[in-house]
Design a binder for these strands. Structure first.
Lengths: 194, 194
DNA sequence: TACGGCATGTAATCGGTTACATGATTTA
DNA sequence: TAAATCATGTAACCGATTACATGCCGTA
């Protein structure tokens, strides 16, 4: 069974586990959770339970080696094998394809465009607030020294930059939308001079 | 069983079906596929088979009414019920939450940042090409008259605008990255004057 | 030593993807 | 009328989410 054999076809979460472990040497499922939360978690999340299931799968494939404690909880620690490392490299060297926006807010907007403007405004206001919040988080992160920003517990300079651009684009978009969507009840007293 | 009862918790694909059928009156699974391809499909895709399974589910919940042909293929046509319409409206009025980038390219970049620059360059070049392509598609779409751009078979003015901004952000990002990543083998013959 | 939060797992369910299968309709 | 394409569905599998369950450890 070859690494280049496409029959494996692991999913993204598998490679997140592989990648994090590769960067950190070794760790438990909980370690993975903590690392993910402060790095990839900024743009790619999944439930914690995946971080227990995924390593099992990878270990069964020979991509991870597993050691289990003798004491109480018999907790499992994983590390990447040479085969696993090769699989990761192979994946990295493959084209990534086109990403989808898959934005729930956009989806709702798409269907709300025909409806009452007030609903659009509400949506825009919500999204605007969320994106501003997130931009602030990124701004805080970018102030950190490189040592903290890089590595398994950091966001990575480049990925952080994309986060920035993404948030900016969103803020531009929802702001424009809010500004161009009429209020539901323009005050009847206001006069519109010709 | 109330529409406002959160026990339903349909997924996004359910609402895409609901939304498209609501806009178009009625249609078959194949109609849904065609509508989706030219509208939401630009930023949210899923396999065609979903468009056969999803309406069944919705019909079972009373959100769609189904009529079946008597002739050969006995094909099914769906339309939204009043209950379904209410469920859609309810969903639209709910906050959408924060969207994730979930970009495979970014993910690979995150793990490739530590590795050889050449791999980063390859990735950046691929992504740049894909995003430029997509931007061109959006440019073409935006040239269309409103009648073609709006409605179930159109992208929608607003969503299209966001597509634009997203592609621009990506092009900026991957271009910057490509420009800032050193070539793997700078020609050994080149002299670097002090 | 009791309690709250941290840490570590398993089980059940379900939506989504892939693969399979075949009927109609157009066109060469 | 054969081939190609359009159209319509089903079945099996699997990753991902939710919910359940419980052990360790610091501190009040």
């Amino acid at each position: 069974m070859n690494v280049n054999d496409a029959s494996q076809a692991l999913g993204p979460s598998s490679y997140i586990v592989l990648g994090l472990l590769s960067q950190c040497g070794s760790g438990t499922s909980y370690d993975l959770k903590r690392w993910a939360d402060t790095s990839v978690g900024h743009f790619w999340t999944f439930p914690r339970s995946q971080l227990y299931a995924e390593p099992q799968r990878l270990a069964a494939l020979g991509f991870l080696a597993e050691t289990q404690e003798d004491s109480g909880r018999r907790k499992r620690t994983y590390r990447v094998t040479a085969t696993g490392q090769a699989a990761l490299q192979d994946w990295l060297s493959q084209p990534a394809g086109f990403p989808e926006l898959r934005d729930l807010g956009l989806l709702k907007l798409f269907f709300a465009e025909q409806g009452p403007p007030e609903q659009v405004r509400l949506l825009a206001a919500e999204q605007l607030a969320l994106h501003r919040e997130r931009l602030a988080v990124y701004q805080a992160l970018s102030g950190l020294p490189d040592s903290a920003a890089e590595g398994p517990s950091g966001f990575g300079r480049h990925t952080l930059r994309m986060g920035f651009l993404y948030e900016e684009a969103n803020i531009t978009f929802w702001t424009e939308l809010l500004d161009s969507t009429p209020l539901s009840q323009p005050p009847a007293t206001a006069s519109v001079p010709e």
